[in-house]
Amino acid sequence: MKYSSKSYTLFTIANYIFLALLSATCIAPLLHLLALSLSSKAPANANLVGFWPVGFTTAAYYETFGNQNFIRASIISLLRSVVGPVFSMIVTTMGAYSLSKEHAQFKSRNVYMWFFVFAMLFNGGLIPTYMVVRSIGLMNSFWVLILPIAVSVFNMILLLNFFRASVPKSVEEAAFIDGANHIRTLFFIYLPLAVPALATITLFNIIIHWNSYFDGLIYMTDSKNHPLATFLLTIVVSENANPLGMVNNIKNISESTLKASQIFLSLIPILLVYPFLQRYFIKGIIMGSVKE
């Protein structure tokens, strides 16, 4: 196909410029943040920093690395971003395997399915969930960041659809005839075939864990247990004169360069994961629309 009309050429030029500008707006805030974090305090506080550092210095980063609260919160976040996704994937994969069986083979399958789907569509809300977590004694425990969000019914359905679409029935039957049981079949037949789907969901899980701040805020009454996202929230909102009560008890007012360096450091893991994520997530989203 060729499009040679003059108006189409004009449109193409305008289109390229527009899309380039749009891309620029998506990255500009991050560039400003980086520039700010590398600037001296005086120009930063006088709002003189644009997209290039003014009075280049890495002092803010030195100070941040010396901030014990920041380091501790980062470690908690790194831990939850490893333990959380691994735990979640194990539980979700096991469940998705069973649910991927046909009704004829696994009679209770549909009962389980409705059990999970209802839990996805209806929830008890903030306060009852909070009370349950409290009564199980999970307050201030590391596991409160892992367990409540470990099972995502949506991911389970995604995975079971993937299992159904990508594992040939004949291969599975051959395994059974050779004497494999379900657990062996799951490990040696299903898992190797589902690597792309597992990678996608794991990466999404990592991002969710790294970015979650609300669970840390409400379940960790001791600010020493806050993950990084919650720690940053306390810094960010203190400046915005926020009437958040709980948050305002912990004052972390810092100068803009210091704040910028902390926020930028918290971005780095996401930027590191992003190239891998990009390879998978488009497939993942399209996979999500595959119907049973």
């Binding site: 649910l99 839990a119 209806f122 306060i127 009852p128 009370m131 349950v132 049981n181 379900h182 657990i183």
Partner: peptide, 30 residues
């Protein structure tokens, strides 16, 4: 004989959903 394994594999997610989805739904009684 091995279908019990299918129930077993679902056990962890069922327990977690009971704890963090259904218990709060019952908790709406408050």
């Amino acid at each position: 004989k091995i279908n019990y394994q299918l129930h077993f594999l679902l056990l962890p997610s069922v327990v977690l959903i009971l704890m963090f989805s259904y218990a709060p739904i019952l908790g709406l009684i408050m």
